[in-house]
Design a protein around this nucleic acid. Structure first.
Length: 474
RNA sequence: GUGAUUGUAGCUCAGUUGGUUAGAGUACUAGAUUGUGAUUCUAGGGGUCGCCGGUUCGAACCCGGUCAGUCACCCCA
């Protein structure tokens, strides 16, 4: 026995692997993602939003109960440290018993990874509202974690990219959010997005007409599935939830309202005539349509569409709601969403702070851009210049030339060893380096170098002193 | 959390009813080629067949479990 163990060398080799639903991002992917994130960030900044970062972890109680029963299950919990300490053995065991009976256990876990950016934002506002300039406009670009089962376009760690404003009821915010969407998609050259809007007030009025407020959530959940399961199944689901056939009839009429934005709103007024809430919702949307018409520039390639079937799952929304659909040429659905919520911080004991916000789905925007080949070539370029290494004396000259180029802001590198041309060319090609500088013994004597454009194959003899200017212009 | 399906070289994939030493293309390395990327040719390295266990004289192949990917549901970005 002992012999066998000796034969196996004792090593600590671990087979490298990633936790389920997480990813590494290689250099090209990081560049492309950064291109998207920086575009969004710059637009947020242009509208006066300020950056905020919050910890990866929150207190578990900050998160629990905010995302519904299903949401709670998807929160990643962090095990407390020191549970194996003898002094804590009794409480640890008790905690584990509680856990088995399905309770939340402070004894075992007090912290959790954040599940979205909105609740940490609300927590931040609740802690700091006294010292913040209100309304507080913040944007936040950070990873969040969900213990969901991964599938395409769905991960356990992913980035969210949110802009929210706290402490303002003005519709100007919503109008600017629409404008931000349009500007970002223009910047990324994504054409044909649909920005869909609706209002929770309208949905709420509909629920009122169909049995009362307690029906709001079931109704929104059911009609949110409309394009997925079709009108018949929606009716079925509503029937199961105890709505009468009269009420379902109303909802069916509601869902079948068609026409232009204004036609839909006019038809809606006759469907829900007595509701002041519906009236408010309609007025708000009319205002946004009007502003959008005025602000619209030739740059905007996204359309603003009133979609009365838009519901959005999260039930903290109370006013206008948004969702952005990817261009119909790709099969990726929603790439952003948001809306207004009246009570951001009530759950933290701070009343009277309303908010509104939007979010960009970075991973899906990436997929859209990849599919439509919208990333500019320049995104892929790291170094602009590679100095060939043709020997010790030759490369020595390259050091100072490289330093000169870097001083001018040109990224460049020296090939790491003397090697044949083939190898050095291939390196440049694989790294998407557009120019190579060749300095051999003949060039060295004359203080010149050969600059070759890899794509065109064009070569120029350039004096050492002129190299920087030549490449700045190239 | 439920169900289905896949896992073989760095990458894309073959692999017969279970049978000797697991293959191809591509990529890589060296040479033909001592200063210009191609093509071609030659040679070479590279595998715990996801992992653990079981059945068998014998398992990449059959069975069980597990991990990971993909897809659908739930839900969601």
């Amino acid at each position: 026995m002992a012999k066998e163990e000796k034969q196996k060398p004792k090593t600590n080799i671990v087979k490298p692997s990633l936790p389920q639903g997480t990813r590494d991002f290689g250099p090209e992917i990081v560049r492309k993602r950064q291109y998207i994130l920086q575009s969004i960030q710059s637009v947020f900044e242009l509208y006066g939003f300020q950056p905020l970062e919050t910890p990866a972890m929150e207190q578990l109680e900050t998160l629990m109960g905010k995302y519904g029963e299903e949401g709670d299950k998807l929160i990643f919990k962090v095990l407390n440290n020191g549970l194996d300490h003898p002094a804590k053995e009794v409480t640890a065991r008790e905690g584990f018993e509680k856990l088995l009976s399905g309770k939340n256990v402070k004894e075992l876990t007090e912290r959790a990874l954040k599940y979205d950016l909105t609740i940490p934002f609300a927590r931040f506002i609740a802690m700091n509202h006294g010292v913040l300039v209100m309304p507080f406009k913040r944007y936040q670009i950070q990873p969040v974690w969900r213990a969901d089962r991964p599938q395409k376009g769905r991960y356990r760690e992913f980035y969210q990219c949110d802009a929210d404003v706290a402490g303002s009821r003005s519709l100007i915010n919503e109008a600017e959010f629409i404008s931000i969407y349009q500007e970002v998609f223009f910047k990324l050259n994504i054409q044909g997005c649909e920005i869909r809007i609706n209002s929770r007030k309208i949905l709420s009025a509909l629920a009122e007409q169909c049995g009362g407020q307690h029906q709001l959530t079931p109704i929104t959940i059911a009609i949110d599935k409309l394009d997925k399961i079709g009108p018949d199944k929606v009716k079925e689901e509503l029937l199961q939830r105890g709505l009468s056939s009269d009420q379902i009839d109303t909802i069916e009429k509601y869902l079948s309202l068609t026409g232009s934005n204004n036609e839909k709103l006019i038809a809606l007024k006759t469907l829900l005539p007595s509701s002041s809430q519906a009236g408010e919702g309609i007025e708000e949307i009319e205002y946004l349509l009007q502003v959008n018409e005025k602000m619209r520039s030739s740059n905007d390639r996204s359309t603003l569409l009133v979609d009365l079937t838009l519901a959005r799952g999260l039930n903290y929304y109370t006013g206008v709601i948004f969702e952005v659909k990817a261009p119909s040429t790709v099969t990726i659905g929603s790439i952003g969403g948001g809306g207004r919520y009246d009570d951001l911080t009530g759950t933290f004991g701070v009343e009277g702070i309303p908010g509104a916000g939007i979010s960009f789905g970075v991973d899906r925007i990436y997929d859209v851009m990849e599919e439509l080949q919208l990333f500019p070539d320049s995104v892929e370029v790291g170094s602009k210049v590679l100095f060939f290494n043709l020997g010790a004396a030759e490369i020595l000259a390259s050091f100072s030339l490289a330093k000169e180029l870097r001083k001018k802001g040109i990224a460049c590198e020296l090939f790491h060893e003397q090697a044949k041309f083939d190898k050095q060319f291939k390196y440049a090609e694989k790294k998407n380096i557009p120019y190579v500088v060749i300095i051999g013994s003949t060039e060295l004597e004359e203080n010149i170098c050969t600059v070759k454009n890899i794509k065109t194959g064009k070569q120029d003899k350039i004096g050492f002193a002129e190299l920087g200017d030549f490449l700045v212009k190239a």
